[in-house]
Design a protein around this nucleic acid. Structure first.
Length: 105
DNA sequence: CTCATGACCGTTA
DNA sequence: ATAACGGCCATGA
């Protein structure tokens, strides 16, 4: 009965399920949301999150294991990840092999 | 309805 | 390793 009506809602549910200390990619979220080619739109959804949202948007990075954001947003995402034990280089690189979230079920 | 945008990705060089 | 290019497609104006 939990049929999600639209892409944005599916993205919200998936991102909300990423456990602390883990990350996933835009492409993986798109895949789980049922639109394998809509990785770009995942970023669009996260960019338009309502102010005050508690969604852990910072646990989504790109396929290279790098933070896609620039400038101040890059620093904020890096700090949020480091705060839960994820190692991030100054350039914004994360070891996907080590921190990638495996969705099962 | 059309059009522009873009927190992406795979391929190619 | 980096960079350019084209395709992709949900969203908002």
């Amino acid at each position: 009965m939990s049929e999600q009506s639209n892409f944005s809602e599916r993205v919200w549910h998936i991102v909300a399920a990423i456990p602390p200390g883990k990350v996933t990619t835009y492409g993986d979220v798109a895949l789980l949301a049922g639109s394998p080619r809509a990785a770009r739109q995942v970023g669009g959804v996260l960019r338009r999150l309502p102010a005050g949202s508690t969604l852990p948007w910072f646990r989504v990075i790109n396929r290279h294991g790098r933070i896609s954001l620039q400038g101040d947003d890059l620093f904020r995402q890096r700090d949020a990840l480091e705060a839960e034990g994820i190692e991030v280089s100054d350039a914004g690189e994360i070891a996907l092999d080590k921190y990638r979230w495996e969705y099962d079920r």
